[in-house]
Amino acid sequence: MDYETNEIHVGMADMKVAVAPAVLTSLGLGSCVGVLLYYAKAKIGGLAHIMLPDIESVKNKTNRAKFANTAIPDLLEKMEALGADRRFVKVKIMGGAHMFGFVKTNKVFNIGARNVEKVKEVLKELKLRLIAEDVGGSYGRSLYFYLETGDVKVRTIAHGEKML
């Protein structure tokens, strides 16, 4: 990925904020959800790659970037530290697939759907506006978040490529 020198990679259970012309990327999301926050006026963007819905449901609370209900508020704060105004922050979410849809274990196992549900709940609490989403299905996604424009390229292997 070195041809785009502006790319900043956000790994699993991690979050980053940056300003244009940076491109925030998250590669190979399955049931994880990428939450992308954008403040257009100053071209500030943030990307959180969350794995689980709720920090309260686990014992190990060391990494707040891993959970929807801690990662999103933290990410918003980081953006505010760079000068973003939360009233104008817009949100896009991607991911939350169910990779092993055919393995009939139990409903609780559809962590992708639970992640998406929780993310939406948290966005509502924070009064953040969700303007685009590409979630669900049973395939992986790679995200390229262009902070210059706020556009997100979603790449998949068998389901094409799109801009959101």
Binding site: M12, L29, G30, L52, A97, R141, I157, A158
Partner: peptide, 18 residues
């Protein structure tokens, strides 16, 4: 599953990640 390695792995790791 035929897909990106990352996508395949994260489903599995989520159980561990908790």
């Amino acid at each position: 599953v035929m897909d990106m390695a990352g996508a395949l792995i994260d489903d599995i790791l989520i159980q561990l990640a908790a």
